[in-house]
Design a protein around this nucleic acid. Structure first.
Lengths: 204, 204, 204, 204
DNA sequence: CGTTAAACGAGACGGTACGTCGAGTCTTTCG
DNA sequence: CGAAAGACTCGACGTACCGTCTCGTTTAACG
């Protein structure tokens, strides 16, 4: 689940016509477009199939459900959009990361991701998949930023790195998904200068 | 919306059989039970009606949609569970509030609330209602805690109160809805001692 | 089956909104029109529902299947089109009946009926229904014609009435459904003069 | 249509692997078995292919459609089962023929043939094929019987041979396909003694 | 205290989407 | 190149819910 199912083991030595891999992308693209048009709730499999000029069976052969399709579509896009910044300073890296991530989450993928959040409590597999991609990826980038800052000697010796990582993500998500307030430069600056740097940085 | 509609103006001087107010609670109760059973997505109006031994029209007479019913059910329960703590110290109040709120959100209402979050991007009215109850109520309690601490002289003069209020909520919601990690005492202590108090408290 | 199901017994005190009887006719009419357009095989429930501006559930509430709907539609029409002739003579009655029946079967109902015939071997209930309406009704009319002829003294004492009844029906059906030859006056005359009258009539 | 297509002209110098002719029979056999199991309506190409351990393309290479396959299967079997009787007397030949034909039609091929009848009105090519095999073959055998009886001087000079041929077929088909009554010796005797012989025979 | 109008449980209604299945075509690998 | 396997598009299937609409019945407030 959460990635097209190819039953690697079960279908050797490859009998019959193989899956057309280009349909995977076409369907993911269609899913994203439909989601951007009408939102997650109103996304229907028929609409996705129609936009990709595919049969519904072709979708269900790869993903088990609408949710599964959307998860896969989103996580794939998320991974392509998370790159580790390297400005040379802790503050710069944090600012860069928060801005980039905020921008990315403000688009259609952010809305889709938010829709997924609503499903997490009742879909344990989805929850696992979501955490293993969205959250872990974002967390790893932040960890890397802090690690490089430590190598440069920018951190206090007892800096609570885990707390900083958690707070950075939490603040973004909270604004984006709950309060709906703008994720602008002012907000990023406030987070970095008032909260994150004071917690871990050396200088006052 | 978001509360049973009684068209006060439009139905004077009260002709015909009046609404049976006890049905409101029965329906909210049924909605909560169904949601606890099968989750928000799988909740159907037929199921709620059946469990409350009510006709669907009786539901639609009071709430405009499934979403509306769920919002009302949740916010009503939320408001009953948000009380302002008063332990005499800033740290105590924060600890008390975070623990109480975490416990409340960990139950079925928390799951329902999370389901609502998924709908926010495509339902502006829901978003407004959600923010005006869940978020504002929680924010007001925190503001009250900080105000009373200030009166007691526990705050730094330039304490960024808004940031603290935002962070406290964000950290809770992030754990509850996204990472799924435990909202236990250790977490509460870490938040209070490492993050919140250092940001606003006078102490060393 | 084969007539709209109203569970007479089971829904005694009339709970809930009653079935709208006018939908029965609208649906039967739509079924007949669709069948006339595209034939039985290509008739779809969606098409019938669309033409009657009805939901599919409204159809399935009354008939269990496409076949059931078509049976009911046809038998109802058949019964309205089978009237006992009374010309005063055996030959006249036979001619009248064969002509009428042939004309009726040559229209869309005949095609539909023929489609049903193809299903009889695998659908025992349909077979029973079909025989109890189409065949018995037609047989009864012919029996009546022979009985009145007997009262008028037109029959041989040992006339094989059953055989005549069977042959009259068989000859019509055979032409209509199998050979596709015309069911015209010449054919009717030949059947009556060469076969039926010689078998039972007193002959001059 | 209605016989395996071999594109005689188009494949002149015979390049590549030649069609495996034994697959024709295997597929026809599979079609017959499936049809006997589940009836014509429920027969699927996948089921036929699976039972013959063949690919669907192998079927479509030989027959244009499901209907085409079934027609060919049936007509081939029919022609193998229609032999001209020669008992030396008109009555004997008729009895022999009717009994044989009735027995043959009572088996699975009869059911399949009946299924085809339901398609005739909307499938002109099928109708032509059906008439040119089933009907003409049976008709020719009956004509032969009558011709030989005429040579033996058993017929009235003005015997309506066409009518007899038609009636013999009609009576069989009517019983078999419509009324479902038994096609036993008593029925055959009644047809021959009461209807067919009196119409054409010399004797009293 | 009878009338009256709306609320009530029940369930039919027109719709829309679901996930499955079959027809007929296309595309692989193997022999 | 033929044949087996199975993916492909298309479209119908029968079901489930939606939100609305009748029904017959109940229940207050008005007259």
């Amino acid at each position: 689940m959460a990635t097209p199912v190819y039953d690697g083991a079960a279908r050797s030595p490859q009998r019959g016509r193989p899956r057309d891999a280009s349909r995977d992308d076409a369907l993911r693209q269609a899913a994203l477009e439909v989601m951007a048009d009408v939102g997650y709730r109103a996304l229907t499999m028929d609409a996705v199939a129609a936009r990709a000029r595919a049969g519904k069976a072709t979708i269900y052969r790869r993903w088990e459900s609408k949710l599964d399709l959307v998860i896969d579509t989103c996580t794939q896009l998320a991974q392509r959009n998370l790159t580790e910044p390297d400005t040379g300073s802790l503050g710069g890296d944090l600012r860069e990361f928060l801005s980039t991530f905020a921008g990315f989450l403000s688009g259609p993928i952010g809305k889709a991701a938010q829709a997924l959040v609503g499903e997490l409590p009742h879909e344990p597999e989805l929850a696992t998949a979501f955490r293993d991609t969205f959250l872990i990826a974002q967390r790893d980038v932040l960890r890397g930023i802090l690690d490089r800052a430590a190598e440069r000697g920018e951190l206090k010796p007892d800096a609570p790195r885990g707390t900083v990582v958690e707070l950075a993500g939490a603040a973004l998500i909270y604004r984006l998904m709950l309060t709906g307030e703008a994720l602008d430069g002012a907000f990023v600056d406030r987070m970095v200068d008032q909260v994150l740097l004071p917690l871990v940085g050396k200088g006052q």
